[in-house]
Amino acid sequence: MSFAENPSEFPVTVDPEKCIADKGCTICVDVCPLDVLRIHPETGKAHMKYDECWYCLPCELDCPTQAIAVSIPYLLR
């Protein structure tokens, strides 16, 4: 049986301890070609909002505090 909402393992994970989005940084959000990242209105930290990752890595490489890790989507792994 399949629920209308499924648990999912998202490719982009953000370490909230390291993320400085709450201080005005938007680099990862800016550089994502598919525009899938957003700053969470409650935590102020970056997160993956849309599950549409091309595993291309600019978010991880350009993050000034190395807060982001991208893993290859499970279907391709």
Partner: peptide, 13 residues
């Protein structure tokens, strides 16, 4: 072939 919509050769944008 993976069936993953975003796993394209080209940048999917």
């Amino acid at each position: 072939a993976s069936g993953y919509l975003w796993g394209t050769y080209e940048n999917p944008a």
